[in-house]
Simulated assay, not measured.
Amino acid sequence: MHPLFRSLRDEVPSIPVDLDGEPMIAREQDTVASFLLRTVDPDRYRQSVVSAQSHAPLCMMGVCFECLVEIDGQKNQQGCLVRVRSGMRIKRQIPEG
């Protein structure tokens, strides 16, 4: 777990989500971006499909568009603006191959 984001409260309800096909546990107050920053290496948050350069959230308020992920089948969603919810399917935008 990466220490970029951590809860200020000790006990936060957990909810199940799916990340890249794997079951994971998020915290109820997480945004998709904060969940990913706590869970995966920031260099693996997403990659450019053109250059394969790593990208990760920068502003956390919906201005920079560096937090784009696929949520429940919809690509290019701003992860910093979407709260996780039970059963959510999240896919990082990492080119295959």
Rank of each mutant, 00 (worst) to 15 (best):
T39A: 09
C59T: 15
V12K: 02
R46Q: 03
R44Y: 01
S7T: 14
P95K: 09
R38C: 08
F5D: 00
S51T: 14
M60C: 00
R9C: 04
V82L: 14
R38V: 09
M60G: 00
Q77I: 13
R6Y: 11
F5R: 08
L81V: 08
S86K: 13
L8K: 11
Q47K: 15
Q53V: 10
R83N: 15
I15R: 11
A33D: 04
E22Q: 15
P3N: 06
G62R: 11
Q53E: 09
Q74F: 11
S7E: 13
I94Y: 06
R92C: 04
M24C: 11
E28Q: 14
S48Y: 04
P57Q: 05
A33Y: 12
H2F: 10
S48K: 08
E66L: 11
G79N: 05
L68M: 07
Q93W: 03
V84Y: 05
K75P: 06
L68D: 01
I25G: 04
L19S: 05
R85G: 14
I71G: 06
I15S: 01
D20K: 04
S54E: 14
L19G: 01
S54N: 03
L4Q: 10
F35R: 03
R9T: 10
D41L: 09
L36N: 14
C59W: 14
D20Y: 13
H55T: 05
M88G: 10
D10P: 04
R92N: 00
R38W: 04
R6C: 02
G62W: 09
Q74P: 00
D10S: 12
L81T: 14
G73L: 15
F65R: 06
V82A: 03
R6E: 15
T39K: 08
K75H: 05
A52L: 15
P95E: 13
E70A: 12
I15C: 04
V49C: 01
D41G: 04
Q93L: 12
V40K: 12
A33F: 09
L37S: 01
V82S: 02
E66V: 09
P95V: 12
P42W: 12
K91W: 13
P23Y: 04
M61K: 06
Q47S: 05
V63T: 10
R9Y: 12
V40I: 15
S34E: 11
R9F: 11
I15M: 14
H2Q: 10
R92F: 03
C64G: 10
G62I: 11
G79Y: 06
R85Y: 10
V32N: 01
A26V: 09
N76D: 12
Q93N: 05
R27N: 15
R83F: 14
S7L: 15
E70V: 02
I94S: 02
S86H: 02
E22W: 03
D43L: 08
P23W: 01
